[in-house]
């Protein structure tokens, strides 16, 4: 047990919102994730970094079952992810996901992109869903674009819409899979600002990103992954100032 897990064990919050226990995953013969153990408490903000191909995206994609793990356990909000489609849908409704390439629905207007989940999954009445969608669009500073289509928006605007779309489902956890990697440099800040706002409101977040500034200022814990394993995790201060492992040091020296 490392230091962080000991801390987690003494925190007053009851059960962790996400528990991953000795989880493994293979793509064919390739062992992408090896013996992953992760506990996330409600309200925790975790940044996951690591070289490409280290399995960080795969890890968070397993948490809402976009990828299937092959061994071990993943328990989200008390529901274990198995082949049972009922459980999977239950978990997905509680976990929001933001993708690298936004993945908005291009045939629907912005507001319809946002209300789709609430109306069809949560069975919210349309009027109520519209009001809620407008509220979240306002929150990501893009309410005036509600009637437009995704193709008419810039990348940064689309990503903010994607965040608002996830928020409309009132998720307990938000997963971010390299949310700024596909953006032009001048648009990264507008997306990060929205994410910082979210963090300050106490949203539980797992963020895969290379934005180390974001990690330093927002994260409660920074995790470094390499070759399918969690190499090191620590508070941002310790992580950046005093990394323990050689691989972490090498990685940080390359990107900072």
């Amino acid at each position: 047990m490392n230091e962080i897990e000991q801390q987690a064990a003494v925190t007053p919050a009851d059960r962790p919102i996400i528990e991953v226990k000795s989880m493994h995953k293979w793509y064919g013969d390739f062992h992408v994730l090896s013996d992953i153990n992760l506990h996330v408490q409600l309200g925790e903000r975790i940044v996951i970094c690591g070289p490409s191909g280290s399995g960080k995206s795969t890890l968070i994609r397993c948490i809402n079952r976009l990828e299937e793990h092959k061994r071990g356990q993943i328990i989200v909000n008390g529901t274990e992810l198995t082949n049972d489609i009922k459980n999977i849908e239950k978990v997905r409704a509680e976990v929001g996901m933001v993708f690298q390439h936004f993945n908005l629905f291009p045939h629907l207007s912005i507001i319809d992109n946002l209300t789709l989940g609430p109306i069809w999954v949560r069975k919210t009445p349309k009027k109520e869903a519209d009001e809620m969608a407008m509220m979240f669009l306002e929150k990501v500073h893009i309410a005036e674009q509600a009637k437009k289509f995704p193709g008419q928006l810039s990348g940064g605007q689309q990503q903010r819409v994607a965040i608002a779309r996830s928020l409309c489902m009132k998720p307990k956890v938000m997963l971010f899979d390299e949310p700024t990697s596909a953006l032009d440099p001048e648009m990264i800040k507008e997306v990060l600002d929205v994410m910082i706002d979210l963090a300050e409101e106490g949203m539980t977040m797992l963020v895969v990103t290379h934005e180390m500034g974001f990690a330093k200022s927002v994260a409660d814990r920074v995790m470094f992954m390499d070759e399918g394993q969690i190499v090191e995790q620590n508070t941002p201060h310790v992580f950046f100032e005093n990394p323990q492992h050689e691989r972490t040091k090498l990685f940080l020296s390359q990107i900072l």
């Binding site: 976009l66 849908e89 929001g96 993708f99 993945n103 629905f105 789709l116 999954v121 489902m169």
Partner: peptide, 16 residues
């Protein structure tokens, strides 16, 4: 693929 994943991630079922 992203369209399927986005639909999955907001909890829509196959028919939806």
């Amino acid at each position: 693929r992203g369209q399927f994943e986005a639909a999955d991630s907001i909890g829509l079922n196959y028919n939806q």
